[in-house]
Computed example of a mutant assay.
Amino acid sequence: MRIVIADDHAVVRTGFSMILNYQDDMEVVGTAADGVEAYQKVMEHKPDVLMMDLSMPPGESGLIATSKIAESFPDTKILILTMYDDEEYLFHVLKNGAKGYILKNAPDEQLILAIRTVYKGETYVDMKLTTSLVNEFISNTSQDIASTSDPFKILSKREIEILPLIAKGYGNKEIAEQLFVSVKTVEAHKTHIMQKLELKSKPELVAYAMKKKLVDF
C-alpha cells in the first residue's frame, strides 16, 4: 500500500512514517503539512491511502480538503486521523468522501487495521465512537442535508472553502485571486454564508470558524 500522511506537526509525520514503513505491505511515499499540500502530494504520488489530520493550522484543514481530494482522486482512500471524538466531524467527513475516522491516541495495531480496512474500500470508525453514531449516519444519508438543525451542514463546498479565508482576514480581492473567481462571486458567497449561519458581524464569523476548527489562532 502506498500512503501519504498529512499532519501539521513534523514529529507526528515522522513517527507515523516509521510505524507504517515497518509494515511489510506499507510504504509512505509522501507527507504534507496541510490540506493544500496533501492535495498536491496525492496528485503527485496517486497513493492508495491518504492519512490526514482534521486541524492543520495555519494552512487548509483536513475538513475542507477531504471533499476536494475525494472528488478529484476517488481511488485514494481517505483515513481521517484526529484528536476530535466528535460525531459532527465524523458525519461531515464521511459524507464528503472519507472512508475512515480514527483517533490519534489509538494503539498502533488499531491504526494498521484502519489503514488496511479503508484500503479494501470498507469503512472504519474508531472503536471509541459508538455503533449508534454510525447507524445514525447511515440512516440519514438519504435525507436532505438542509433538514438538519446545524446550519454549517447546509453550506456549499465553495462556501466552506471561503469561510476560513474570511475569518483569517483575507479581503474579497485576495480570496478571488486564490480561488480564481470574480470578486462579485466572493461577495455573493460571503452574503450567503452570513445569511445561512445567521451571523451579523465579522467577529461572529471568526468565532464560528474557530468553533468549527476551520481556523486556529
Rank of each mutant, 00 (worst) to 15 (best):
M1H: 03
M1Y: 05
R2K: 08
R2N: 07
A6V: 02
A6R: 00
A6G: 01
A6L: 00
D8R: 00
A10S: 13
V11D: 09
M18N: 13
M18R: 15
L20M: 06
N21V: 07
Y22D: 00
Q23A: 08
Q23R: 04
D25A: 05
T31M: 08
D34N: 14
G35Y: 12
V36M: 02
K41Y: 09
V42I: 02
M43I: 08
E44I: 04
K46V: 03
L50E: 13
L50P: 11
M51P: 06
S55I: 08
P57E: 07
S61E: 03
I64R: 06
I69C: 04
A70H: 10
E71V: 03
P74M: 04
D75P: 04
I78A: 12
I78C: 12
L81S: 05
M83P: 05
M83L: 13
M83H: 09
E87T: 13
E87M: 12
E88A: 15
E88D: 01
L90N: 09
L94T: 15
L94Y: 08
A98K: 01
A98C: 08
Y101N: 05
Y101P: 05
L103K: 13
K104S: 13
N105K: 13
A106W: 04
L113R: 13
I115T: 04
R116K: 10
V118C: 14
G121S: 14
T123R: 02
D126F: 12
D126I: 13
K128R: 15
L133D: 03
N135I: 14
F137H: 14
I138F: 01
S139K: 07
Q143K: 08
Q143G: 02
D150I: 04
P151E: 02
L163Y: 06
I166D: 11
A167F: 10
A167H: 14
Y170P: 06
G171M: 10
G171S: 01
K173R: 14
E174I: 10
E174N: 05
E174D: 14
A176D: 13
E177W: 03
E177T: 09
F180S: 00
V181G: 00
S182V: 09
V183D: 14
V183P: 07
K184P: 05
K184E: 15
V186F: 06
V186Q: 06
H189S: 05
H189Q: 00
H189M: 08
K190W: 05
T191W: 08
M194A: 03
Q195E: 15
L199N: 05
S201D: 10
P203G: 14
L205Q: 10
V206P: 01
V206F: 10
Y208E: 00
K213W: 12
V215I: 15
